[in-house]
Structures are given as C-alpha cells and as structure tokens.
C-alpha cells in the first residue's frame, strides 16, 4: 500500500523540502471542475463548468459575488469556498463601511492568501482545499487574480484552474496576446473555447453546465446592466447568445488540444 511518512502533519517538511499536505490541497483544486478567467483593457470575465451529481440533481454553483465590483469562480471543496467567500465579503463590507471605498482587488486577494498561508504553517490545521479565480475592477482598471491554497496569489492576463485546466491553459497561452484589445463578446468567445478544451470527449457546453461572470460595461446581449459594469453572473437562457458565437471545433485551427494530461484523477507527482 502507498504510504508517505511525511504527510501526516502540514508543518513537517519532507527530506526533499516539500510540504505534502499543501501539495495534497493543490490536488483538491484539480479535482474540481474547471474555471477560466480572462482580462481585456475594459473587462475581466470568468467562465466555469458546473457539475451535477446525476440526472436528478441540480448543478453546483461555481461563482460567487463578493461585492458590486468583485466576483470569484471556485474549484475544489465548495464548503471551504463558502467559508473564504464569506470572509472576503466581510472584508469588502468593512472597507465600504470604514472608508466608504470599494476594497481594492489586490488587497482583498492578498488578505485571503495571507489567511490561507497561516494554515500551511501552524500545527493542528489543514490548508484550504479550494482555489479561486478572482475578477474585479477598481481605480486601476479590471483585474484577474488566481488564489491557491498554498497561500500564493498572482495576477494574470488569463488563467484556468480545476480538472483538465491544462488544456484550457494551452488555448489561453496561444491566444492571450489578442485579449487586451478584445471586445466583451470576443473575450467571452475565447473563454468558451478555452473552457471547451476541459470537457470530456462526448460532452458539450450548454446553458445548464456553463456560468459566465463579468465585470465591466454591458455586452450587446445583456439588458439592464448599470453603466458602472458591476459583477454579474450569467446563467441559463442568458448565455444562449454567447454559446451561439462559438466556432465549432472542426473548423478551427487544429493545433489546439495537445496531450490532455488526464488530471481528472488524483495523481501525485513523484
């Protein structure tokens, strides 16, 4: 039976200088269904693939609104995500109440990363088993951040997390240079194409299994969005128009989708 001597306690380094509990937490993120984030000069967007446990079950919520100007997509343990999104909401409210200022996105992400880092260092705790993509806008424009349970947070032009997210990443790496000047419709189309790469062979994106989160001015397919372009989550019928803009895979440049690394299942490196 596989047994690892150095993984029973997150504060103990292995002889290779690794913290196994933290690495397991990163694996938990890879178990969750994929989420993709992209940023242009005017917008940040999230796209996520929702799962349902069966024909009779509803689809699990993948996106959460933190404040008018910030939203997240999650991959990993939903219960941990609810704890952390609650925390982020409190931080956002606190900034609004104390300074009458929407919390700057980078500060919120750093705060939640600091909180997660403590759990990788103290005895008797476990790391959070969830990763976020965070989008938001503040005085310095739209932003996209990744948060991971190791306590890292980075800003990105485009990023993907979750199961088979490497395939989406490959797509994003190929096209990211065009994202900055994209309009919202093209940006979402790129996002949908990237998200499609994470699907299993016989699956397709549809209005039930796809969520779109947007920060920035309204799209031509949206109604009743205030001019400030607050964070909103589009689901169901509202994303039909966006799904319609996708270009079928066959007609596309065939280069994409290299060796899907099959990280659907947990595979510890080493």
């Amino acid at each position: 039976m596989f047994r690892n001597t150095y993984d029973s306690d997150n504060t103990v380094f292995s002889p290779q200088g690794r913290l196994h509990q933290v690495e397991y937490a990163l694996e938990a993120v890879k178990q969750g269904s994929a989420a993709v984030g992209l940023r242009s000069k005017t917008h940040s967007i999230l796209l996520a693939l929702k799962r349902s446990t069966g024909e009779l079950a509803s689809y699990q919520q993948k996106m959460f609104r933190i404040d008018d100007h910030i939203g997240i997509a999650i991959a990993g343990l939903t219960s941990d995500a609810r704890v952390l999104s609650n925390f982020m909401r409190q931080q956002a409210m606190s900034s609004k109440m104390v300074f009458n200022r929407p919390v700057p996105v980078n500060r919120l992400v750093s705060t939640v990363a600091d909180k997660a880092q403590v759990n990788t260092q103290e005895y008797g705790r476990r790391p959070y088993g969830v990763g976020f993509l965070v989008i938001g806008q503040d005085q310095s424009g739209p932003h996209l951040y990744e948060f991971s349970p190791s306590g890292n947070s980075y800003e990105y032009y485009a990023m993907s997390i979750g199961a088979r997210s490497q395939s989406a990443k490959t797509y994003l790496e190929k096209h990211y240079e065009s994202f900055a000047d994209c309009n919202l419709e093209d940006l979402i189309r790129h996002g949908l194409h990237a998200l499609r790469e994470t699907l299993q062979q016989d699956k397709e994106l549809n209005i039930n299994n796809t969520s779109i989160g947007i920060v920035g001015p309204a799209s031509e397919h949206e109604n009743g969005v205030p001019p400030t372009g607050p964070f909103r989550i589009l689901e169901g019928e509202k994303i039909d128009a966006f799904l319609g803009t996708m270009i079928a895979k066959e007609t596309e440049a065939p280069a994409a989708a290299p060796a899907a690394t099959g990280d659907e299942d947990v595979q510890m490196a080493e």
Binding site: V98, F99, N100, R101, P104, N106, R107, D138, Q139, S140
Partner: peptide
Amino acid sequence: QDGHTLGPAEIHEY
C-alpha cells in the same frame, strides 16, 4: 505600495 491612496472622502468616513 499598490497605487491606492486614501483621499479626503475616505479619511472623513474613517
């Protein structure tokens, strides 16, 4: 050091 500063409105609210 992230470019965000507190202006008079924020200081007054505080």
